[in-house]
Design a protein around this nucleic acid. Structure first.
Lengths: 339, 339
DNA sequence: TTGTAGGCGTTATCAG
DNA sequence: CTGATAACGCCTACAA
């Protein structure tokens, strides 16, 4: 059996409250006793039982993180950001994987509560009304990361990149480079940020430039290499007039598209330009290097964790959507037509 | 304040022990009372407080996972495997990142204990005597994943792939394909499996084929694109006679090497063959596709988690090293000289 | 400044 | 089968 506060008290010849006080600095203790107690603590390598402590303080210093796919590089980067601030603030993270399924997301939200975590960081796929209700009715702070609620802003605290604007910027970048026939090979429909926000950014920007979006130029696929490959294939097969550029929903999708095009002897960027999304590490591993929209998921994770901890620790926090900036990165998969 | 077992007991008109019993099925309860209690539980959505429970049962159903780098795809896959079995067995995982620093690894091992986890899965960089001692003296089950102890087998329970054999197989594969000048561009020296085991496999296999390993053909670098690139550059610059093949420590390193070679107009595989390691998802995204050694980190994670849980739940477990199989995957970065 | 005692929410032991 | 009651290890008024 591990050594308890009582053992320490006994050995130091003081009461357990005194031991508690020197450990937590919660009330003044005479120097003499303090030293004596410290000594005994060190000697016995005493570590207070966090469960017992949590039971009375209602605080566990643990925060939950819910993501759809642990092995996804995007969430890897985000988690790293989260972890860096949590560690420095004395919090430990509990990561759970939802697979993007509503059922499991709801179950995990509950699991977190059971575990008495202090708060959760939620990276959903489509944070709809059911999810929002579930989040709001719980008695722990929650901030959304990576994905805003699909039923409107200002309802739950959020840290995201502006998906609409990011995609809009990507399309505008292509327009600025003289492209007019721009296809969209984005993430899945059921993913709110990809299925709705980004597609919206794509369409609006084309429209603003006087270009009517073409259904046959729009393909929404899963975030995987295979899906990206098949999506590009479909666009290729079903259009007699090919686009001169494609905006992708992720770098993986972009790379898959390039691979397909190469297989049908279409050169990137000479025949078709490709724009990635995310700026994953590997986007410079390829030849040609990927032009892309840089999203700092690491930073997004950091911000979200900071926001959550601020909330947990009682610093008044306004429920709002915080945007982390994105940036267009030009590399070799874009060819300019104008000038 | 959340509803407690006492509230339920009161509302159902029974004692708290009865409520506890119906929840845990620990002792028989008359059907009548059981139904009545269940009703009240459902109605109030009562969830027992895990902290209080853990305090008395000494079990938290949480297992800790310590990795050096959360955003590394290898650990992403492993974690996913771990998570899948943990979830099915009712355990939740607590992931911590050590950065591969001994200090932090030791600190995390302690943190885990503080949190009263039931056991930990440890993926270290060099599990030396200090670490092993620290692991053994703790009072929770621990199994090493991905990396065996550097001070010998059979001391702590382990699930790994056979690094020596895997690298040996890779080299043998190259030998079988007629290569004689094979360079080694592996992981960092301080990483036991890469710095020691794999290098050993490389040297032994060459020796067995009557080839004396060349120092100038051996480069040990960090697991990053940049480091891989620089490492390949060094081999290129410092050898008047270039190797005809290179075995890499990871797919990322392999891709980086290819990139460098391309930049100095050396063709892969016609001029130099490249063998990757890991078989990461992206190894088929490139042209040419990467020949590599497939390691199923997902499966490794699964096995380790199973082993740990078996241990936690008291099924006698023999402390030994479990190997998960690897496999040579031939793709396009290898050219055969013979036949 | 220090100690006593009650309570946090459960499980488990022991009578009934 | 059921119900008190004592732990579990710690924090925190309340007293001294």
């Amino acid at each position: 059996m591990a050594v308890t506060i009582e053992d320490i008290a006994k050995e130091a010849g003081v009461s357990i409250s005194t031991v508690s006080r020197v450990m937590n600095g919660t009330k003044p203790v005479s120097e003499e006793l303090r030293d004596r107690v410290y000594e005994v603590i060190k000697k016995n390598k005493f570590k207070p039982n966090t469960l017992a402590r949590g039971l009375v303080t209602k605080k566990t210093n643990m925060i939950g993180v819910i993501v759809s796919d642990i092995s996804n590089v995007v969430f890897g980067a985000m988690t790293k950001g989260i972890n860096s601030v949590c560690e420095s603030k004395g919090y430990t993270i509990m990561i759970c994987e939802s697979g993007g399924e509503l059922e499991r997301e709801l179950k995990l939200l509950e699991l977190m509560e059971d575990k008495q975590i202090d708060g959760v960081l939620f990276a959903g796929i489509d944070v709809n009304r059911v999810l929002v209700d579930s989040i709001l009715k719980r008695n722990y702070p929650t901030v959304l990361v990576t994905q805003e609620a699909s039923i409107g802003d200002g309802i739950v605290d959020t840290v995201v990149h502006n998906n609409t604007k990011a995609m809009s910027d990507a399309v505008q970048f292509l327009l600025d480079n003289g492209h007019r026939r721009i296809a969209y090979l984005g993430g899945p429909k059921h993913d709110f940020s990809s299925g709705k926000k980004r597609l919206q950014g794509y369409k609006e920007t084309l429209l603003k430039a006087g270009i009517e979006p073409l259904d046959s130029y729009i393909e929404q696929v899963e975030f995987s290499f295979r899906a990206g490959y098949e999506g590009m294939k479909k666009i290729y097969e079903e259009n007699s007039i090919l686009p001169t550029a494609v905006v992708a929903g992720s770098d993986v999708i972009a790379v898959a598209a390039i691979q397909f095009l190469r297989n049908v002897h279409i050169d990137v960027p000479n025949d078709i330009s490709i724009m990635g999304f995310d700026d994953s590490d590997f986007s410079t591993y390829f030849q040609p290097e990927l032009s892309t929209v840089r999203i700092s998921y690491y930073h997004e994770g950091e911000m979200a964790a900071q926001e959550l901890i601020r909330w947990i620790e009682g610093e008044t926090t306004e429920v709002k959507t915080h945007y982390v900036p994105h940036k267009i990165i030009r590399r070799s998969t874009i060819k300019a037509f104008n000038q």
